[in-house]
Computed example of a mutant assay.
Amino acid sequence: MSDIRVRPALLSDDPALARLERATWSTLHAVRPPLEEHEDFFSERFGPDVYLVAEAEGRIAGFVGVVPSTPLASNAHVRRLQGLAVDTWARGRGVGLELVVAAVEAARRQGARRVTLRVLGHNTPARRLYEAAGFTVEGVLPGEFLLDGAYVDDVFMGRAV
């Protein structure tokens, strides 16, 4: 897919991103319940300013958040990827990789020296995507989450920017 464009999210993207979040929600990647039908995508904690949106074929294909790892000044050089999602129709076309590469570049522009993320151990497609973007496993919390009756590892990954 050569027409992928990644841009900053806009407040007006909220309905489309909420629909995408609900449509792609799965225990393969999510540890919290899905958004309710009436819930907004953006929140006080994570507004449009922290998200990047991928567009392809004239519509939103995915999103990713780039947030400070913690509110501590001593940790201000680290950003964390938050909430990557790619719509079903756009999967396997490079949208996820474009989003991750753009997120790392956004972190660099924000002055970050490192980017981290958390991914569920059973989410093999996401782990391969992050590895393709230069992330490596830096730690594992075995059985951290109970999802659909199974204990799932929480995998920490990171890379320099």
Rank of each mutant, 00 (worst) to 15 (best):
M1K: 04
I4D: 02
R7T: 10
L10P: 09
L10M: 12
S12W: 05
P15H: 05
A16F: 12
R19V: 10
R19I: 10
T27M: 04
V31D: 00
R32V: 15
E39P: 07
F42C: 04
G47I: 10
P48H: 13
V50S: 03
Y51V: 09
L52E: 04
A54I: 04
A56P: 01
I60S: 01
G62V: 04
G62T: 05
V64E: 07
V66F: 00
V67S: 08
P68S: 09
P68K: 11
S69R: 14
T70S: 15
L72S: 12
N75G: 10
L84C: 05
A85Y: 15
V86F: 14
G92Y: 11
G96A: 02
E98Q: 12
L99H: 14
V100I: 08
V100F: 06
A102H: 00
V104E: 05
A107G: 12
A107F: 06
R108Y: 10
R109C: 05
Q110I: 06
A112I: 07
A112T: 11
A112G: 07
R113C: 11
T116L: 14
R118S: 08
N123F: 09
T124D: 12
P125T: 05
L129P: 14
L129G: 12
G134W: 14
G134L: 05
T136A: 15
P142C: 06
P142D: 03
G143Y: 03
D154R: 08
V155E: 00
V155D: 00
